[in-house]
């Protein structure tokens, strides 16, 4: 057989006989850029490019949150315009004067949509915040309160999850006389279930962790252990869950208002805009439903993306992404 050249370039192969000093690490230092040209064939490399550092993810998160805040501020500022009627300007299709057109009473649809979004975001914030607090308390109670408390909380979770959300919100909202508070309480009381389960699981997992048992053997008290070990364990999941609750809450608020069991018609809200628009769709006024609908979708997506950004920052299982 002919002697062929070795198939691999071996520029860095340390000759075993060369007595390299033992105290010299041979692993190359991490490189800031992409890997240097590898010797031999590339068998596999990462598929997609990733964000260069965490700061970019943070910036994206902040940008999205400020966009939402801007919508809320604009909505509050535009609230007087949203209800102002001008019958000389009715049924205009979208144009430069009225970006989203006007309705049958000559109200500017852009102002109405923005004000409606602001209402929706505020209801969503309130409901999601309250819901997350319920979830935190019940999750902790279930995890730390013994078998009976756990059973009761899980039963409650199953009960609430067993009834379709929309039906339950509808019932609660109706029982509380509809309106702002009806919707807010209805959404708050129905959206805590999955987050409560997450909190419960996290706390239980943490409680059983060997490092918690060890902390107890080192003489740390239960409150100390909860503050040092359990809270930091639950917090990331809790924050992400809270952010991801917003879109749900907003959509359900809009749905319930659309059905007529939510916010009063005089308050600009996406749900009421959409339900009113339905009657005019057949007469060709597509902009009344389409543009506010798209705006709602955009707001929900913004929250969702913000939540995903936050998750990539603080969720330990995805922290390297």
């Amino acid at each position: 057989m002919p002697e062929l050249p070795a198939p691999v370039s071996q520029p860095t192969a340390p000759a075993p006989q060369a007595a390299a000093p033992v105290s010299q690490p041979t692993v190359p230092a991490p490189q800031a850029a992409a890997p240097a040209s590898p010797s031999g064939a590339v068998l596999h490399s990462p598929l997609r490019r990733r964000l260069p550092n965490r700061r970019l993810a943070l910036v994206l998160f902040v940008v999205m949150l400020s966009l939402l805040a801007a919508v809320v501020c604009a909505g509050i500022a535009l609230a007087p315009t949203a209800t102002a009627t001008d019958f000389s300007q009715k049924n205009l299709s979208p144009g430069l004067g009225h970006l989203f057109g006007t309705d049958w009473m000559g109200r500017d649809m852009f102002a109405r949509t923005t004000a409606g979004l602001a209402t929706s975001v505020l209801v969503g914030l309130l409901a999601a915040g309250a819901s997350a607090c319920i979830a935190l308390v019940l999750g902790m109670v279930a995890a730390l309160g013994g078998k009976k408390a756990d059973g009761v909380v899980l039963w409650l979770v199953d009960l609430v999850m067993g009834i379709p959300h929309i039906l339950l919100i509808l019932l609660i909202s109706f029982a509380l006389g509809k309106g702002f508070w009806g919707v807010a309480v209805g959404v708050a009381l129905t959206h805590w279930t999955s987050l409560a389960r997450v909190v419960r699981a996290e706390v239980i997992q943490c409680r059983q962790a060997p490092y918690v048992a060890l902390a107890r053997r080192l003489g740390r008290g239960p409150l100390d252990v909860a503050a040092r070990h359990m809270l930091p364990a639950v917090l990331p999941q809790f924050l992400v869950g809270l952010i991801l609750l917003f879109p749900h809450a907003i959509l359900h608020e809009a749905a319930i208002t659309f059905l007529g069991f939510g916010l009063p018609p005089e308050l600009p809200a996406i749900g009421s805009i959409l339900s009113e628009a339905v009657t005019y769709l057949s007469s060709g006024m597509w902009w009344l439903a389409l543009l506010p609908g798209v705006a709602l979708l955009a707001a929900v997506l913004l929250f969702d993306r913000a939540g995903a950004c936050l998750r990539s920052l603080i969720d330990p299982y995805r922290a390297q992404e």
Binding site: A209, P210, Y211, R217, L218, G219, R228, H229, P232, P316
Partner: peptide, 22 residues
Amino acid sequence: RRGMCPIQLIGQHPELVCDPRM
């Protein structure tokens, strides 16, 4: 029952007995 235990256990899996968030 409480307080620092004068008998300390060291196990086979050190990664399980260190809080990953500390």
